Simulated scan of single mutants.
Amino acid sequence: MEPMTLLIVTCILFVGSHLLLSHPLRAPLAGRMGERSFQIVYSIVALATFILVVQAWRGMPPEPPLWAAGDALWAIASLVVLIASILFMGSLVGNPALPAPGAAFAAQGAPRGVYAITRHPMMWGFSLWALAHALVMPTPGQFVLSAAIAFLALVGAAGQDVKKARLMGDTWRHWAARTSFVPFARQIRGTTPWGDTIPRPHALFGGILVWIAATWAHGALGYMAAGIWRWIS
Rank of each mutant, 00 (worst) to 15 (best):
K164E: 14
T192S: 11
A226K: 13
V162Y: 10
L13W: 02
H23Y: 15
W57L: 12
T192L: 15
A134F: 05
I228L: 14
S127P: 01
A110K: 07
G156T: 09
G109R: 08
F151R: 13
H120S: 04
D196E: 06
A213C: 05
R178T: 11
Q39M: 08
T139H: 06
L20S: 02
A157D: 04
F143G: 14
H174W: 11
A68M: 13
K164Y: 10
L167Y: 06
G59K: 00
L98P: 06
L66C: 04
G59N: 01
P140W: 01
V45E: 12
A27R: 06
A176H: 14
V144P: 05
L145N: 00
A203Y: 03
I12F: 13
F205I: 13
P65H: 13
A165L: 10
S22G: 01
A84K: 00
I232R: 04
N95M: 01
A176Q: 15
R186H: 09
A158W: 11
V81L: 14
S43H: 05
S37A: 11
W231I: 14
A153L: 06
W194P: 06
T10M: 03
A203L: 04
H133I: 08
S91N: 12
R178V: 00
G70F: 08
F181E: 15
I86M: 04
M122E: 13
Q39D: 10
S146Q: 02
V53H: 02
A134L: 12
M60W: 06
P183Y: 08
S43A: 10
L25V: 00
C11P: 08
P201M: 01
A68W: 08
I51W: 03
A69L: 02
G113R: 00
K164T: 15
V182R: 05
S22N: 03
I12C: 13
M137S: 15
L25F: 01
Q142K: 07
G169C: 07
G222Q: 09
G109Q: 14
L82P: 09
P201C: 05
V144E: 07
P64D: 04
H18T: 05
I12Y: 07
H202P: 13
M89Y: 04
L209V: 11
R173N: 15
L82I: 09
L167S: 12
A116S: 02
W175C: 10
L13V: 03
V136I: 04
F181N: 12
L128Q: 08
G195C: 14
A226C: 10
Y223R: 08
Q108M: 11
A158F: 13
G190F: 11
I198P: 07
V114N: 03
L7K: 12
I44Q: 13
P183W: 07
A226W: 14
A110Y: 08
N95Y: 03
A185S: 09
G169V: 12
V144W: 10
A153E: 15
G219M: 01
T197R: 01
S127N: 03
E63Y: 07
Q39P: 04
G109V: 06
G90S: 07
P101W: 03
I83M: 15
T10F: 02
I228Y: 06
S85F: 09
P111S: 02
Q187C: 02
M224D: 07
G31N: 04
